[in-house]
Simulated scan of single mutants.
Amino acid sequence: MTRFTLKGGTVKLDESATFTVQINPADFKHTTGITYDKKKTQGDPQATPKFAAVGDEHVSFALVLDGTGIVPPGANGKREDVRTQMKKLNAVAFQYLPDTQEPPLVRLLWGSLIFFGRLESMNTQYTLFKPSGEPLRARVDLSFLGAMSKEEAQLVSNRSPETSVTSVTVIDGDTLPQLCADHCGSAAAAPAVARTNNLPSLMALTPGTTLAMAARPA
C-alpha cells in the first residue's frame, strides 16, 4: 500500500509512505458495478435498462498486525510493535493531508490486483495485550473506494466517441505517464492504464511489453 498524488497530470508515488503487511489477508472482496437508466416509456410493460455509467469500485479486506514476535521481521529486518504499525498504516491511508486538504490517495498491490482509491472505513479490534495494556495484536478491517479522474473513467468504460483503443509497445526508457500523455492525451490516465493492463507498478515498464491504450486522434 503506497500513498500517491496526482499533480498537473503527473502521477507521483510517495515511496516514503508505504505500508507492507506482515501477513497476507486470508481473502479480499473486490466489488464493481454498472449504473443503468431504468426509465419506462408510458405504455411499455417493461423498459430495457440503458447503460448510464460505470459504478463505484470497492475493495475490502482484513489485516492482522502482530507484535508478539511470532511473525518473522519484515524486509527491513526489524520487528515493529502494533502501535508503530498502526501509526504507519494511518500515515499512508487515513491521515489528513494539509497540502491537498483531503484524505490521501493510495495504491494497493497484491498479486494481480492493482487498485487506486481512498480509504472508506477502518475498524480496529485489539485482541492481545501486555500487562501494561499495550496491544500485542490487532485485526484491522479496511474498505477502500476507487478513485478515478474523468480521463480514467473514460478509459475504463471506453465511452468516449473520440477515442479508440490501440496497442503500444514499450521501448527502453518509456514511462507510463509519458506514454499516456502521448497516446491518451493526459498523464493522469496512468492509473487506469495500469489497471487495464494488470501492471504491478506505474513506474517499472518492461521493454517489449504491449499495452492497450485509448488513443485520441489529433
Rank of each mutant, 00 (worst) to 15 (best):
M1D: 01
M1S: 11
T2W: 07
T2M: 15
R3Q: 14
F4G: 13
T5E: 14
G8I: 01
G8V: 05
E15G: 01
E15K: 07
S16M: 07
A17K: 12
F19C: 00
T20G: 01
V21K: 00
Q22V: 06
Q22L: 00
I23K: 10
A26D: 09
A26K: 14
A26R: 06
D27K: 13
H30M: 07
T31G: 02
T32F: 00
I34H: 01
I34G: 06
T35Q: 10
Y36R: 04
D37K: 03
D37C: 00
K39Y: 01
G43F: 05
P45L: 13
A47T: 12
K50C: 03
K50S: 14
F51A: 00
A53H: 02
V54K: 09
D56S: 12
D56P: 01
E57L: 06
V59D: 01
V59C: 03
V59E: 03
F61A: 05
F61Q: 04
A62C: 08
A62K: 15
L63G: 02
L63E: 01
G67N: 01
P72L: 08
N76I: 01
K78T: 05
E80M: 05
R83H: 04
Q85M: 12
L89C: 06
L89T: 08
A91P: 03
V92C: 03
A93W: 08
Q95N: 08
Y96W: 15
L97D: 15
P98T: 13
P98M: 08
Q101W: 08
Q101V: 13
V106L: 08
R107M: 15
W110I: 09
W110G: 13
S112M: 05
F115H: 04
G117E: 10
L119H: 02
L119P: 02
S121T: 14
S121G: 08
L128T: 06
S132W: 03
P135N: 10
A138Q: 05
R139E: 11
D141T: 11
D141Q: 13
L142I: 01
S143F: 02
S143W: 02
G146E: 12
M148A: 15
M148L: 13
K150A: 11
Q154K: 12
L155T: 15
V156C: 06
S157M: 08
P161L: 09
S164D: 10
T166N: 00
T169Y: 03
V170K: 10
D172E: 14
G173A: 07
G173H: 02
P177V: 04
A181N: 09
C184A: 14
G185L: 09
S186Q: 00
P191K: 07
A192I: 05
V193L: 02
R195W: 02
R195C: 02
T196D: 06
N198V: 12
P200N: 07
S201H: 05
M203R: 11
M203V: 13
L205T: 04
T209R: 14
T209D: 12
T209K: 11
A218M: 03
A218S: 05
A218E: 08
